[in-house]
């Protein structure tokens, strides 16, 4: 799919976002670059405060005061969205060609509007459909995301839907205008595991049938492995490692990525203890001059006082570390005794 189109559908170049707060200037994003090809699924992974949601908001043009994009560029099919003409075009693009699924389905729907009204509003505004056509299309969309009795459901209010159903409605809203790019900001964090699995299956299904590009924002590496081709790992406002899911999971270069993978519990893991990354991420009010992970890194050295440049890895990814591919974490005393994958 991706090969037919040489230009990426979305490209983010060296993006910096600042928040002017009472305490001082908080550097939310500190030079984020990545690109998404058509039909590709990319994951942005990181802890809370690492800047993954800010990245999504910047792409959607949702950075409000006191925040602002201080430098860098966001390109849609090669066209900047941040120039004056670009901003005009972006208004039409957002919500139509680029749409977003928010984290919390409980608060993202208007409780005073029926599900149908939500869908019809979007379809009339962006697709210019008549009321009747919009209703019919809304029923189709609810059906597409696996909601039973879609006609009856159109007249119901959000409180009559369960969490998983609401997230399905959010996805139906997001795909209503047949977007080319879907940004999903922790779409399953508020859901039960079985419902989460269904929503992820739905996303994978839509991606296949519609040729959608997806940027999935999550803190759960399990979800990344299940859904995404490419991964970018964020830490303290920058991308520390990027590559295909396979290379990042199999040959993690950055100590933080290695730590993150090791601290994610696995079902076939019989270790009595989990491995943790000690300490906490640095404050972005006064980010460290050198490598942001230095204070928590087990293999840091004098060199890390300086900020490492982004370099390509042999597997085709990129990493920002002075000593990449070093096994940073010693093996625990009890090694996992070969549990079988299910």
């Amino acid at each position: 799919m991706a090969n037919a189109h040489p230009t990426p559908i979305l490209e983010v170049r060296d993006l910096c976002v600042e928040f002017d707060t009472m305490a001082g200037l908080v550097q939310g994003l500190r030079g984020v670059s990545f690109s998404v090809m058509p039909g590709e699924t990319m994951a942005l992974v990181g802890e809370s405060g690492s800047g993954k949601s800010v990245t999504a908001q910047a792409i959607m043009g949702l950075i409000g005061l006191p925040g602002r994009i201080s430098s860098g560029d966001i390109l849609w099919k090669g066209q900047s969205l941040l120039t004056r003409e670009g901003q005009k075009a972006a208004g039409k693009l957002r919500g139509k060609s680029v749409s977003m699924v928010f984290q919390d389905p409980m608060t993202s729907l208007n409780p005073l509007m029926t599900i149908g009204a939500h869908l019809i509003e979007v379809l009339r505004r962006h697709m210019g459909l008549s009321k009747d056509k919009a209703f019919a299309r809304g029923v189709e969309l609810l059906d597409a995301v696996g909601i039973t009795e879609p006609k009856r459901r159109m007249g119901q209010y959000p409180h009559e839907f369960s969490g998983g159903m609401r997230q399905r409605v959010m996805i139906a809203l997001a795909i209503a205008c047949e977007p080319e790019l879907l940004i999903a900001d922790e779409p399953t964090t508020a859901l039960d595991v079985t419902i989460q699995a269904q929503v992820l299956d739905l996303l994978a299904d839509l991606q296949k049938s519609m040729g959608l590009s997806i940027v999935l924002i999550t803190h759960d590496l399990g979800i990344v492995a299940g859904l995404c081709e490419k991964v970018a790992v964020m830490y303290a406002g920058s991308i520390v490692e990027a590559g295909t899911a396979k290379t990042v999971f199999d040959h993690a270069e950055h100590p933080y990525t290695q730590g993150l993978i090791r601290s994610t519990p696995r079902l076939d893991d019989r270790r009595a203890r989990l491995i943790s990354i000690d300490g906490a991420p640095p404050s972005l009010l006064h980010p460290p001059k050198g490598c942001a992970f230095q204070s928590r890194c087990p293999v840091s050295s004098r060199q890390c006082d300086e900020k490492p440049a982004r370099q390509a890895t042999p597997e085709g990814g990129s990493v920002s570390c002075w000593t990449p591919s070093v096994a940073a974490w010693s093996e625990p005393s009890e090694s996992p005794t070969g549990g079988q994958a299910r």
Binding site: V193, Q196, D201, A225, F249, A341
Partner: peptide, 21 residues
Amino acid sequence: LLSAVPEPDPALRRNGDCALE
């Protein structure tokens, strides 16, 4: 419940069939 836990292993990728439905 066991099959619903997302595993951090790209080899176990979801293929979009809603088996849990």
